Amino acid sequence: MTQPSSLPPLTPQFCFSTTVLRDFLRLSRGTIDDTITQNLNALATPSRAGFDPTSTSRLARPATRQIDASSCETFKNQVLFPSWQSRSDVLSYCTLVATSPDPDDPEATLRETEKEKNRERVVDERLDPYSSRFFPREARTEQLATILRQEMGVENIVRARSWGIVRERCGDIENSWEDALARWRKLHTAS
């Protein structure tokens, strides 16, 4: 059974290094969520009733087997939810970084210089209708916020897909991954 990827040291530099941030999220999703079916298949125990000759039949049969409830609980509590929580921790921390002032922004002076040059420009829209356009560089906090919005959208889609597969394979469990994760968090923060 695959274990969740470990949480990287959370620093503003980690967040601003968007390739490292995205690689962490991609690796964590790839390890757990992208292989959810394989992880759950590994939990399925072989038949206890012995060989069933109809299992080799060419007739349609259910594609998936239900997994033992205790195995499902163990998987969710020790693999799935910790992985989701570590990604949530990273996204929450980096969101905090993206919404905080950035005194160490290396391009702050360059942006101010561009804005000053823009104020000094002479714009004659009759000669060039596009001359009034100005696209200043985004601050790295704004770039990070955009990336985080995209990653949170991906995270919601991935979790919904994974939870659908878990529900299908593990039987009657909570309807939403949000409720299940909140319940798991409550149990793990109380201890």
Rank of each mutant, 00 (worst) to 15 (best):
A98W: 07
N41R: 11
V166C: 05
C94W: 06
M1D: 06
R169N: 07
E116C: 09
S191I: 04
D33M: 08
T2L: 09
E178I: 15
S47D: 12
D102E: 05
L59S: 13
S57Y: 00
F75P: 05
Q78S: 05
F24T: 09
F134I: 02
M152P: 03
R29T: 04
I173P: 06
Q78A: 00
R22N: 15
V79I: 15
E73F: 00
A108V: 12
D128H: 12
T109L: 12
S100A: 14
P53I: 00
V123I: 11
R159D: 15
L25G: 02
A60E: 14
K117N: 13
E120W: 08
Q78L: 00
E174N: 09
R61I: 01
E138K: 11
V20L: 03
S176V: 11
M152G: 07
A139R: 05
T64C: 02
S132K: 15
D172L: 10
F81L: 02
L187E: 03
N77W: 01
S86L: 03
D128V: 08
R48F: 12
E155C: 02
Q13G: 09
R111P: 13
T113A: 11
S176Y: 09
T18W: 05
A42C: 08
T109Q: 14
R119I: 05
S88P: 11
D68V: 01
D68A: 02
I173Y: 08
Y130Q: 15
T113E: 11
W163R: 03
P136F: 02
T2E: 07
R61H: 01
A49R: 02
D172G: 03
D128P: 11
R87Y: 06
D105F: 10
A69K: 07
R137T: 14
R159G: 14
F14Y: 11
P8D: 00
T35R: 15
L25Y: 08
L96V: 14
E174H: 06
S92Q: 13
N175H: 07
V158G: 00
A108H: 10
D102A: 06
D89T: 15
D179F: 05
R61G: 00
R167E: 01
R161F: 06
G30K: 07
A180C: 07
G50L: 08
R29G: 05
S28I: 00
I173L: 11
